Amino acid sequence: MSEFDRGFAAMVAEMPCVQLGEVNEAAALQTRIDRKYVVALDLLDRLDFDEHVMVLEIDTRRHFRYATTYYDTKERDLYLDTAYRRPTRFKVRIRSYVDSGLTLLEVKRKDGRSKTVKSRHPVATGEELSCLTPSMRAFVNAEVDTGLTDRLCIAATTRFNRTTAVDTVVGARYTIDRDVRADTPDGHIASLTEAAVVETKSSGVPTPLDRFLWSQNIRPASFSKYCTAMAILEPSLPANHWHRTLNRYFGRHEQSASHEETSG
């Protein structure tokens, strides 16, 4: 275990805990303003949470494994909508909460006013689908007005470890994602090295964590796990919004047996 892991893990272990139901009551935030930051790992040891901020705990766990499979067209229409900053855009993904076994189909969309709206639909655990089923397509079509649904197939899967905290006073939720990796069906991998992704989710007003990060001269980044990874995995895609993150943090390499055994 690294010095970073010990420092961050020790801080999280000492925080008061909150259960999932309480998080949903206090800061469900399915419609919200998201601010994302890509930060060096050693900054996590210095995160300055107020005393009332609590960490999500489920079955004694405070760090959780996620796997998220993103769907797109072969022409990468959904990627391009984000790359070109189209005001109304969406992502379709299947998110697996690895430690709990919960799997959900999610439609995550921008509503034209910079707010993120997320809708969910249950999926059978362990169901691996190269393309969406008819019921999944019907769900997507009910959420967004698009003609692309029938053409959506797996583009990439991201995997990461997440810690979630909630500030019940300001009604905000914070996530810290580490060990971010992405892989494609043809076996290529992109990995985020020496950095973590910190995200604040609120109704719009800057949170105390936003202000702390700003005090460290860290500003919100134009960042999407899916889009940043795809820009590495498919270099022909436009990636102007993510050049700084790509050049500083991401690397691309081939699928390996050790990854297959450990990625979960």
Rank of each mutant, 00 (worst) to 15 (best):
L129R: 14
L132D: 01
T133G: 00
S135N: 09
S135L: 04
R137G: 05
R137H: 13
A138I: 12
A138P: 02
F139E: 09
F139G: 09
F139Q: 15
V140Q: 15
E143I: 13
V144K: 12
V144Y: 08
V144R: 14
G147W: 03
D150W: 03
C153V: 03
C153K: 15
I154D: 02
A156Y: 07
T157Y: 08
T158C: 04
F160L: 10
T163N: 00
A165P: 03
V166G: 02
D167L: 11
Y174A: 08
T175P: 14
T175I: 12
R178P: 04
V180P: 00
V180K: 00
R181W: 10
A182T: 03
D186Y: 04
G187E: 07
H188G: 15
H188E: 14
S191I: 15
S191Q: 15
S191L: 12
T193N: 15
A195D: 03
A196I: 05
V197E: 04
V197F: 02
E199S: 02
E199D: 04
K201H: 09
K201T: 10
S202A: 02
S203A: 11
G204V: 08
G204W: 00
P206M: 07
P206I: 07
P208A: 05
L209D: 00
F212K: 13
W214F: 13
Q216F: 02
N217M: 12
I218N: 10
A221P: 00
